[in-house]
Every structure is written in C-alpha cells, then in structure tokens.
Simulated assay, not measured.
Amino acid sequence: MASVANYIKESFGELKNNVSWTPWPEAQKLTIIVVVFTILFSLAIWGVDTVFSKLIGEYFNLING
C-alpha cells in the first residue's frame, strides 16, 4: 500500500514540476473552440439521424401499404 501512495506522490510531483502546461488564457480559448465544434457536430449528427429516420419510416410505409 505504501508503494501506491509513493507512486501517487511522485506522479503529482512530476505533473507539478516537469510538465509544461498550456497558459490559462490559451486553455480557455481552446476549450471554447472544442465546445463549439462539439455542439455543431452533435447538431449535424442529430440532423442526419432525423432525416434518415424519416426516410426509412417513409420507405417502410410505402412498402407496407
């Protein structure tokens, strides 16, 4: 159990001292870009799914009667 605690302690030390982090303003800007593109892609996928669902529904209505 001590080795797990030591591993976690060393991991935090490495993250704090050896990792170069993106400056906060740039990280905020990039986060906003990711959120905007995520929303746009989810709306695009929703739209394509809606169109295909209606097309498939119409196709089955056509062949059933």
Rank of each mutant, 00 (worst) to 15 (best):
K29T: 01
K16M: 13
A44N: 10
V19D: 14
S20A: 06
N61V: 06
P23G: 09
L62V: 04
I56R: 06
K29L: 01
A27F: 12
V35F: 10
S42D: 14
V19K: 11
W46E: 09
T22Y: 05
F52T: 07
A2Y: 05
V4R: 11
E58C: 02
T22C: 14
S3C: 05
P25A: 08
L55P: 00
I63T: 14
S53W: 00
G47W: 13
F52C: 11
I45G: 05
M1F: 03
V19T: 09
K29Y: 00
K16V: 12
G13F: 03
K29V: 00
V19Q: 12
Y59W: 06
V35L: 12
D49V: 10
S20E: 13
G65H: 10
S11T: 09
K16S: 14
V35H: 06
S3K: 07
G57S: 07
L15I: 12
I63F: 15
Y7T: 12
E14G: 12
V19W: 05
W24C: 06
Q28E: 15
V4S: 02
T38C: 12
L15G: 10
T38Y: 10
N18E: 09
I45E: 15
W46Q: 05
A5W: 04
L55N: 09
K29W: 00
I63N: 05
D49N: 13
I39T: 00
V34E: 11
T50D: 04
N6P: 01
V36Q: 15
T50K: 15
Y59S: 01
M1N: 03
T31P: 00
W24G: 02
K29E: 00
G47V: 03
T31Q: 03
F37T: 14
V51M: 02
L55E: 13
N64M: 12
K29N: 01
S11L: 15
K29F: 00
T38P: 00
P25Y: 12
I39F: 00
I56E: 09
K16T: 13
I8T: 03
E26V: 08
G65C: 05
L43H: 02
A2G: 07
P25C: 06
E10G: 09
W21C: 01
T50I: 04
N6I: 03
I56G: 08
S11P: 02
N17V: 15
W21K: 02
G13T: 06
P23N: 11
K29C: 00
Y59E: 00
L40A: 07
N64F: 08
P23Q: 06
S3E: 10
A44G: 09
A5G: 11
N17M: 08
I45L: 07
T31I: 01
T38I: 03
A5S: 11
N18T: 01
L43Q: 04
L55Q: 10
A27T: 02
I45D: 15
T31N: 08
N64R: 15
N61Q: 14
F12G: 05
D49R: 13
A27Y: 12
S11A: 14
A2E: 15
E58D: 10
P25I: 07
T38A: 14
A5I: 07
M1D: 03
K16R: 09
V51G: 01
L55G: 04
T22F: 08
V35D: 14
K16Q: 15
I33Q: 11
A2S: 13
